[in-house]
Design a protein around this nucleic acid. Sequence first.
DNA 1: ACAAAAGTGTTATCAGTACACCCATGC
DNA 2: GCATGGGTGTACTGATAACACTTTTGT
Lengths: 245, 245
Amino acid sequence: MAAVIIPNVSVDCVIFGADIQTKTLNVLLIRRYLESENSTTPLVDDYVLTGYHILENENVDETASRVLKELTGLDNLYKKQFKVFGNPNRLMNEKDQIWANSQNFNKRTLTIAYYFLLQTHDVTLDNDKFDTKWFPINNLPELGFDHRNIINEAYADLKEKSMHQPIIFELLPDKFTIKDLQNAYESMLGIEIDNRNFRRKIITKKYIVKLDEKQIGNAKKPSSLYMFSKDIYQKMNKENYIVNI
Amino acid sequence: MAAVIIPNVSVDCVIFGADIQTKTLNVLLIRRYLESENSTTPLVDDYVLTGYHILENENVDETASRVLKELTGLDNLYKKQFKVFGNPNRLMNEKDQIWANSQNFNKRTLTIAYYFLLQTHDVTLDNDKFDTKWFPINNLPELGFDHRNIINEAYADLKEKSMHQPIIFELLPDKFTIKDLQNAYESMLGIEIDNRNFRRKIITKKYIVKLDEKQIGNAKKPSSLYMFSKDIYQKMNKENYIVNI
DNA sequence: ACAAAAGTGTTATCAGTACACCCATGC
DNA sequence: GCATGGGTGTACTGATAACACTTTTGT
C-alpha cells in the first residue's frame, strides 16, 4: 500500500543549524551522487536540500515536519514556510536532467520551501542512511536544482525576520549566555556589535530572564546563563504597533 | 488549443485596495452564485477571491499577474506571494462541495496565495464579465472555501510588513499628503496616531520628498503634496542592520 | 601571577511622547 | 469673517552610540 502523492508539487527544507562552537550558521545538505558507466568521474556529484512529495491526506506543514524527522529524528522545531519556487525551468540544467532521468520524476514540479531552525549539536547524523553534511552558509558546496537560490532566499527571509522577531532563540539552547546571543546575531547578520551596548539592551528586556546558574566547563571566568521567556514576550507585545519605516 | 494546466494547484489573489475617500482598506471579491432547481433560495450565494490554475509553461508569479489583469485590467502592481494553503479539507464544507460538483474541479487542491496592493479608484470594474465588489476588510461578506482564512492571513502579513517596510506607498497615489499617509496607517493598523509627532517623523525622512504642488479641489486650505522616493530609500538602507526584538 | 573572557559606566546625541494653539484658505 | 482642516513648537523622557578599563576565574 504505497502512499499516494500529489503530483507536480514537492516540499523542500532548508535546515539551518547554529554551531555554538564554530560560531557559524550552517545548512544541512544531502549528497547527490551518480556514477558514470564509462568514466571514473561521476555524472553527478553535488549537494541538495532534503525534500519530498506531499501525501494525499497530508497537510503541507506535516510533509515538511515528516521530511525533517526522517533526516534528523527531530520534531517540534521552529518551521517557516517562506516561498514557493515554480519556475518552469527550475529543474532543467544539465546535471538535473541526468538525475531526473535516473530518478524518473516530473520535470515541472513546484516546490514549497520551508526553513527550520535548530542547533547543529542536536542532530545525530545517521550517515548510513543519508550522506549528509553541515555547510556554513557562507561556504556552500556545489548545489543541485535551484537549491542555491532557495537557500539564499531562506537566508534573506531569516535575516529580515530576526531583526524584529525573537526567532534567534530558536537557534540557541534554552540556557544561553549574553555572549552566545551576540555571537548568534553577529554570525547570522555578518555584523559586529558593541558588546557593552548590546549587553545593556538585552539585559533590560523583561523577557530575557537571568538564571541562578553559571556556565561550566569553559576554562575561564564562568558566565551567567539566561533564558528567553516566550510568555512574557507575548504578554508585552499584544497590540503594540510601532511603525518604523 | 486549450492551455494545459498543472493539476492540484491553484493561485488565489487577495486584492487590497485603499479607498482614499472612505479611508478604508478594502478587498475585491467575486460573487459566487448557484441557483436551486426547486427553490427560490439559491444553493450557493457568497463571495470568493479571484484565482486560477497555473499553466504548464508559466511561472507562478505570472499566473497571479494574469489573474489580476483579467479581473482589473491592471499590471505591474505590488505583489506578494505570502503563503500556501494546503489543508486536505480546505474545500470540504457543504457549499463548497455543491459548488465543486457543479464546476468539476479536484477536491484536493493546494492554493498559492498572493496579495496585491492598489487604490480602489484605479480599478474600473467590468461587472458584465464578473460580479465583483469592494468590501472593507472589517466588514467582509460570507465567503466561500477557506477564503476568509486566506484574507485574514494576508491582512496579518500586510500589517506586519507595513510596520518596517515602505509598502504603505503602494496603497497611495504617487502624490499624497501627510494626512493621507497617516490615514492609510490608521485604517490599516486600526490605530490612532498623534498628528504632530507623525508629521515630524515623516518629514524628517529624506526619502519622503516635498513637491512644489498643493492639493486642489478640497474646500479648505490646500495641503502640500509629497512623494516617496524608492531610489533614496534603497540607497539609505544598504547594509543597515538594526536589531530590534 | 598571568591569561582569558566576563562584566561594568559615562556622556552626548537622537528619537519618541505628550500636549494645544495659530494659519491659510474657500465660501 | 468664519468654519475647516493644515500646519507648527516645546519640554521631558528614554534609547542609542561611542568609547576603555576592572573583575573574576582556572591554570
